[in-house]
C-alpha cells in the first residue's frame, strides 16, 4: 500500500468516524426521546356509571410500537366499547384519545352514590397481539346514573374549539334559578379552568381570553342565575395551561348544579366540561424526557 493509499484510507476512516458519530449521536438523541412504555395522561374525570355515559382517556405511545389497543378495561366497571376518536402524530410518539362507553349494569359494584363514587385509578389495556398491561390513568370518579333527564334544566347542545374552550347549552323546562356549581376537581383545576356564562350565542369572550385563569374557576360565573321557561343559557369554559407540563393532566368535569324551581331544589349534572389536550412537539419531548429521568 503506497503512502497515498494510506492517506486516502485514513481520510475514509475519518469519514467513517464522522458518519458513525452522526449515526451514534442521532441514535442516542432518538433513544432519549422514546417512552420506556406507553403511558396514559393523568386524568381527572367525572362520569356516570350507566348506559349512555362516555368519556375519553388519552394515551401516549411510541410510533415504533406497532401494537394497537383493542380494548381498555376498568376494574369494577363494565365498559361496552373502546373507540379511538383522536389521533395526533408527533415525531416519535402518537397521542391517542380513546372513548370508553360505559354499559348499563346491575352488578353490585355498580351501586354507587354521589357521596361515595367508585374511583378507578388503573386501566387494563388489551392489545391486538394478545398482550395486556395495567397502567395508571389518574382518577375516574363514577357516579350513579341519572334516572332520567331532568325536565327542569337539560343540555340541548354544546361545542368546543381548538383553543381548548367550549360550551354546553342548557334549556330550562320551567323558570329556574341556578344556585351553585360544584365539582371535586374545581379546586385542583384552579388556575387552569375558567367558567363563565356565554349567553351571547356567538362568542365565549366575556373577558380577555388570553389572560391566565384566576385562582377561582367560578370567579367569572355569576350565581345565582335565573333562566326563564324555555330559555337557553350556555355554560362556557376555557382551559389554559399553568405551565408547560400542565397539558398532561386532563379534566372532564360533570359538575353538580343546584337548581331551584319554586319550592323544589335539585342537584343536577346537565353539563360536561371537557379538556382537549393538544401539546406541542417540544412539550411531548419534555414530557418523555422528564418521565425517563424519574424512572
Amino acid at each position: 500500500m503506497t503512502g497515498k493509499d494510506k492517506k486516502v484510507y485514513a481520510i475514509l476512516t475519518a469519514i467513517l468516524l464522522a458518519v458513525a458519530a452522526s449515526w451514534g449521536l442521532n441514535g442516542v438523541y432518538f433513544n432519549r426521546g422514546q417512552l420506556e412504555k406507553p403511558v396514559f395522561l393523568q386524568h381527572r374525570i367525572e362520569a356516570e356509571n350507566g348506559a349512555g355515559s362516555s368519556f375519553i382517556l388519552y394515551r401516549l405511545q411510541n410510533r415504533t410500537d406497532e401494537r394497537r389497543v383493542e380494548a381498555i378495561e376498568l376494574p369494577g366497571i363494565e365498559v361496552r366499547g373502546t373507540t379511538r376518536i383522536r389521533h395526533i402524530e408527533y415525531r416519535q410518539q402518537t397521542l391517542d384519545g380513546y372513548m370508553l362507553e360505559i354499559a348499563d349494569t346491575e352488578s353490585p359494584a355498580a351501586k354507587v352514590s354521589d357521596e361515595q363514587p367508585i374511583v378507578v385509578r388503573k386501566a387494563d389495556v388489551r392489545y391486538d397481539d394478545g398482550s395486556r398491561e395495567t397502567a395508571d390513568i389518574g382518577e375516574v370518579r363514577f357516579y350513579p346514573p341519572s334516572a332520567a333527564p331532568s325536565d327542569l334544566l337539560y343540555a340541548i347542545g354544546g361545542g368546543s374549539s381548538n383553543r381548548n374552550t367550549g360550551h354546553a347549552t342548557l334549556e330550562a323546562g320551567a323558570p329556574v334559578k341556578i344556585l351553585s356549581l360544584q365539582s371535586p376537581y374545581l379546586e385542583e383545576a384552579a388556575g387552569k379552568l375558567s367558567l363563565f356564562w356565554a349567553d351571547s350565542g356567538t362568542a365565549y369572550e366575556p373577558f380577555d381570553m388570553e389572560q391566565p385563569a384566576g385562582d377561582n374557576p367560578l370567579a367569572n360565573l355569576t350565581l345565582p342565575k335565573q333562566v326563564g321557561k324555555k330559555h337557553k343559557t350556555s355554560l362556557g369554559y376555557r382551559f389554559v395551561d399553568r405551565d408547560s407540563r400542565d397539558w398532561s393532566t386532563v379534566y372532564r368535569l360533570l359538575p353538580v348544579m343546584t337548581v331551584q324551581s319554586g319550592e323544589r331544589t335539585l342537584d343536577l349534572r346537565p353539563a360536561s366540561i371537557e379538556d382537549n389536550p393538544s401539546p406541542s412537539e417540544s412539550q411531548i419531548r419534555q414530557f418523555v424526557r422528564s418521565g425517563r429521568e424519574k424512572s
Binding site: L12, I15, A18, V19, S22, W23, Y29, F30, R91
Partner: peptide, 18 residues
Amino acid sequence: IVPSALAAAITPFALNFG
C-alpha cells in the same frame, strides 16, 4: 465520495427531525 459521505451522514437526522 463527497456527496455519498454527506448523504450517509444526513440519513440518521431523519430519525429526529423527520
